[in-house]
Amino acid sequence: MSEKSPQESQNEEVDLGVLFKAIGESFEKLFRFISNIFKGTFSLIILALKPIVNNFKLVAIILMVSALVGFFIEKVKEPVYVADMLVRPYYDSKYQLSNNVNYFNALIGSKNYAELSVIFEIDSSTTAKELLGFDIEIGPETQNDLIKEYDDYIKSLDSTLAVDVTYEDFISNRDILAGRIFSIKAKSTSNNVFPSLEKGFIKTLENEYSIKLKKRTDSIRKVKRKSYLDELERVENLQKTYLDIKKTESEKDLVKVAGGVLPLIQEKTETKEFELFKEELKIRGALRLIEEEMVDEGQYYDILSSFEEVGAKEKDFFEEYSIIFPALALIILILGYSFIKVFKFIKEYE
């Protein structure tokens, strides 16, 4: 057996010592770097707070004055009231609904109160001038609704394309018109104008295209329903015929037994009652689906929730001036102090 020489062992110990020393120095540099980051951050915070502490009375007065100014503006500013309406449009009237919301906002922006009064059947001199705008967004949806919508979308695609579309991609790429229920938010300076706005949106949902589409859809459904009824009548006639055949064969068997004749082999007519029964169930199921569609989509829209009788006061953080103004004043003071310091440093730099 060969043993390592003392020289080789000493070299290995030296190599390990160098390695551990290098590792220790690396950790020391890392900890020093992290410590410098914390020290630098702390220094910046102190430098930012130092002018505030040194000029505490002036800063306090400015913040108090800005808060009082913001509070005064909040009290003087006319309040904004909002109300929501949930609708489920049929026959692609959602496209007209989206366009008309933009049109209504354009009328409000151009102060065309006469046209607004005609659309919503309201007073142009007072009520129409109180309108501030409309917003439309997808209404409340459950997870089951989204999954069903995704499944319908996948079925409409080619199989090679459907593989690449995930549920997350479908949800992230949906636009507002992909929804089935829509929330319409109205804004006004009056809190009792909202119930009178419903008529204008009803006119929107019953537009020329949706009326034409409903007539065509109803005609197609009537043709399908008649076709299914004719098919159902044919199946019922065949069932009745097979039943008569079975009844006739049973009567023949009874006559032969009563006459004392017992045939060894009795040929039976082949019938398909079970297949006809399954066909009948299939046709009745299709008829039921058509009738459900005719009932569910018998109107151009469904109003799930009307505008509230009294609107709620809108709460917007950016209109909380008693908070926004002091915060802006403090930021301006800090930026101003920093600018002065930088300007002074550049001026005195050699």
Rank of each mutant, 00 (worst) to 15 (best):
Q7Y: 13
Q7E: 15
Q10W: 06
Q10A: 11
E13V: 07
E13L: 12
D15F: 12
L16Y: 11
G24M: 05
G24S: 06
E28A: 13
L30R: 15
L30S: 15
S35L: 11
I37L: 11
T41R: 06
I46C: 10
L49E: 00
I52E: 02
V53F: 13
N54H: 09
N54W: 08
N55H: 08
L58Q: 09
L58F: 13
V59Y: 08
L68S: 11
F71V: 00
F71G: 07
E74G: 05
K75N: 08
E78K: 11
P79N: 02
Y81C: 00
D84M: 04
V87C: 02
Y91N: 07
Y91Q: 08
D92Q: 07
K94V: 01
K94C: 05
Q96C: 15
Q96Y: 15
Q96F: 14
L97Q: 03
N100Y: 07
N102K: 11
L107M: 11
S110M: 03
S110H: 05
E115M: 13
S117K: 04
V118E: 14
I119S: 00
F120G: 00
S124N: 04
E130S: 14
L131N: 04
D135S: 10
I138E: 01
G139H: 00
T142G: 13
Q143M: 13
Q143A: 14
D145V: 03
L146F: 12
D152T: 10
I154W: 00
K155N: 10
D158T: 12
T160S: 12
A162N: 09
V163N: 07
D164M: 01
E168N: 12
I176A: 06
N191M: 04
N191Y: 04
S196T: 09
L197T: 05
E198W: 07
K199C: 09
K199D: 11
K199G: 11
K203P: 02
K215R: 14
V223N: 09
S227P: 06
D230I: 10
E233F: 15
E233M: 15
R234C: 05
L238G: 01
L238M: 07
L238K: 02
Q239S: 15
L243I: 06
I245C: 04
E251M: 10
E251W: 05
E251K: 08
K252N: 13
D253K: 05
L254W: 00
V257M: 12
V257N: 11
G260P: 03
G260D: 05
P263L: 14
P263K: 13
L264S: 07
Q266H: 09
K268W: 06
T269C: 02
E270F: 04
E270Q: 11
E275I: 12
E280S: 15
K282M: 03
R284F: 08
L287W: 01
V295E: 01
E297D: 12
Y301P: 03
D302Q: 13
D302R: 11
I303T: 04
S305C: 04
D316C: 02
E319T: 10
E320T: 13
S322H: 14
I323W: 09
I324M: 07
F325K: 03
F339P: 00
K341E: 10
F343I: 00
F343H: 10
F345C: 04
E348Q: 11
Y349A: 14
